[in-house]
């Protein structure tokens, strides 16, 4: 697929239902953010999620979409934020994710296992795919399972530095830096949403407006009012 830039509009012609999945219109609403997790099988994505949410998590298995959704209510600068964490539910085994997985995401947490080199090597593939769909969203690189070998925390991993991405050493088992990781991801997602300069977002908005004008109907406030799409209040 073409890289970000002038070809983005052409990419949108690809016949894929990006809105497939649980009502993604809601991510346009101000208080909703979507954070996606990426990384190889068995790097501990779900375990990180569960460590952060503890008993507070209510995962929704959406097997039709090969996806697990974790809902979380957070507070950023005194404002309530509803976060949907998207976890892959094994979809990573198809070597790539469905475009709807990336659609309207505001931040990404990319995980590898410090015990397994191959999961680190594969980061470049995940990152490439992420940037095809979301050229600008914040992405955090996470080295998980440091409890298995603390010596790994004294080593340097160039991947994050190379792309100028934030990098965390974490352990889902003993909890090291898990809460910090997710709190920071939520802050980054909210900040991104507020000053979204993402070219794809602009194109999407333009296309949506274009569509509405063509129908000659005044649905200009459509984006704000999709009450049926809101998650149940927490």
């Amino acid at each position: 697929m073409a890289a970000a830039g002038g070809d983005a509009r052409a990419e949108l012609d690809v016949d894929v239902d990006v809105d497939a999945g649980p009502g993604q219109e809601k991510y346009d609403a101000e208080e909703n953010v979507k954070i996606i997790c990426l990384g190889d099988s068995a790097v501990g994505k779900s375990k990180l999620m569960e460590r952060f949410l503890l008993d507070g998590y209510r995962p929704q298995q959406l097997s039709t979409f090969a996806l697990t959704l974790y809902k979380h209510a957070a507070s950023v600068d005194g404002k309530r934020v509803l976060v949907d964490f998207w976890d892959t539910a094994g979809q990573e085994r198809f070597q790539s994710m469905h475009p709807s997985y990336y659609h309207k995401a505001h931040a990404c947490i990319m995980v590898f296992d410090v015990q397994r080199k191959v999961t680190y090597k594969n980061l470049s593939n995940w990152y490439k795919e992420l940037r095809e769909f979301r050229p600008e969203i914040p992405c955090i690189v996470v080295a998980n399972k440091i409890d298995a070998d603390m010596k790994m925390t004294q080593k340097s991993f160039n991947f994050a530095r190379k792309f100028n991405l934030p990098f965390y050493f974490v352990s889902a088992a003993d909890g090291t830096n898990v809460v910090k990781l997710f709190s920071d991801a939520i802050k980054l997602a909210v900040a991104y949403k507020q000053n979204s300069g993402d070219f794809m977002d602009e194109v999407m908005r333009e296309l949506e407006n274009f569509d509405l004008q063509q129908k000659g109907e005044d649905f200009s406030d459509k984006e704000e009012s999709c009450p049926e799409e809101k998650p149940p209040s927490t």
């Binding site: 925390t153 004294q154 792309f163 809460v179």
Partner: peptide, 27 residues
């Protein structure tokens, strides 16, 4: 403890993980 924060300094002195070396240009 729910929130465990540990800072791991990542300055130039630390040893490379050795996983970047052979295909660094691939990234």
């Amino acid at each position: 403890v729910y929130n465990v924060e540990v800072v791991f300094p990542q300055d130039e002195q630390v040893e490379s993980c050795g996983w970047d070396a052979e295909s660094d240009e691939g990234f």
